[in-house]
Design a binder for these strands. Structure first.
Lengths: 174, 174
DNA sequence: ACATTTTACTTCATCAGTGAAATATGACTT
DNA sequence: AAGTCATATTTCACTGATGAAGTAAAATGT
């Protein structure tokens, strides 16, 4: 994979030059955007890499983890779509795949028969408990050299950014 | 689109529960990872949304911007692959599309005739200069409420994270 | 009570992106 | 000059994601 640091150095120069041609550009903010995008996709790559041996992709994993983290280990496709930010179509596919592997079950809801209840199985829980720990060292290593204040700060700033993105969303076409 | 803030709240509870079952999990770090991933993909979504009216996707845009930001407005497929973190296959496709729209040209290199020189055209530059400014308000809005120190800090922390990810990369399978 | 609308998924056709392998060409090494 | 390496493109098979339409059940209006 390409060195992130190189790309960043290159980007910094690029932004510098562009902001000389187009001075009204919010250069600092644009740079932060690109940084977020780069680090985000690098992180995604890293995650997919760790998931590959388990034959899972990001959405599969996320779906499974949401179920795992539920007190009762269950949810519905609609809810999973919302929290995993996936389309319904995709969630059907993910669910199919996980059911086939015996990690979750799909059942009809008693109250509302339109609804489908998805539940993690005992095998699913064991699977998560086995695959998760080997990831921990790399996760920790990502934050090497971060003080407690750094981590708090990063969390706070990302939260603020998330909030602003939510406000932005009422999609007024630019 | 789903509210990021909801997803974050849900994630916080989820991590809390998981870390009770699996106490050795680096909970703070894992939470920051997920935050980064969520904000990153939301940002990506926002970007793609802004690009759609121009019939560009993220890779197309990035490729074009790299060329635009070059003093001489030119590069090679290999270099573009590196900085846009794209595979060669994809870069060929991107280049084809941009050439067809007259935004860039593909020519043979004088010194090394294996090489292909990709250059942004005058039309390409005009295109960038026209499409970029309407994005600025949204970019600025993303960082509403950020002090100068906040922006500096975010930049610093993302840079540090990027550095750690680079160190991590020597892919020792977990 | 019946018709309409809404909600919850699923199915199907399609598309963008990716990896692997094949091809072509040119440069470098000895 | 021959062999090896580097650069770029093309082809192909595949995965993952998406949009449009379809089905079924429940909620709502009249």
């Amino acid at each position: 994979m390409a060195q992130l640091t190189n790309c960043i150095a290159m980007m910094n120069e690029g932004i510098e030059r562009v902001s000389q041609i187009i001075p009204q550009m919010p250069a600092v903010e644009a740079r932060l955007c690109r940084l977020m995008l780069m680090v985000g996709s690098s992180l995604e790559e890293e995650l997919e890499f760790k998931l590959k041996p388990h034959k899972l992709n990001h959405s599969d994993f996320l779906t499974l983890m949401i179920l795992y983290s539920r007190p009762d280990g269950s949810s519905t496709p609609g809810e999973l779509c919302e929290f995993a930010t996936q389309g319904a179509t995709n969630m059907t596919r993910i669910t199919n795949a996980l059911v086939k592997r015996g990690l979750i079950t799909r059942g009809a809801s008693a109250e509302d028969r339109r609804r489908v209840v998805i539940r993690i199985t005992a095998a699913g829980k064991r699977f998560v408990q086995k695959m998760l720990p080997p990831m921990f060292p790399r996760v920790s290593a990502m934050f090497a050299g971060f003080s407690e204040a750094d981590k708090r700060n990063l969390g706070r700033l990302l939260g603020k950014l998330a909030h602003n993105l939510d406000q932005l969303d009422p999609d007024t076409q630019p």
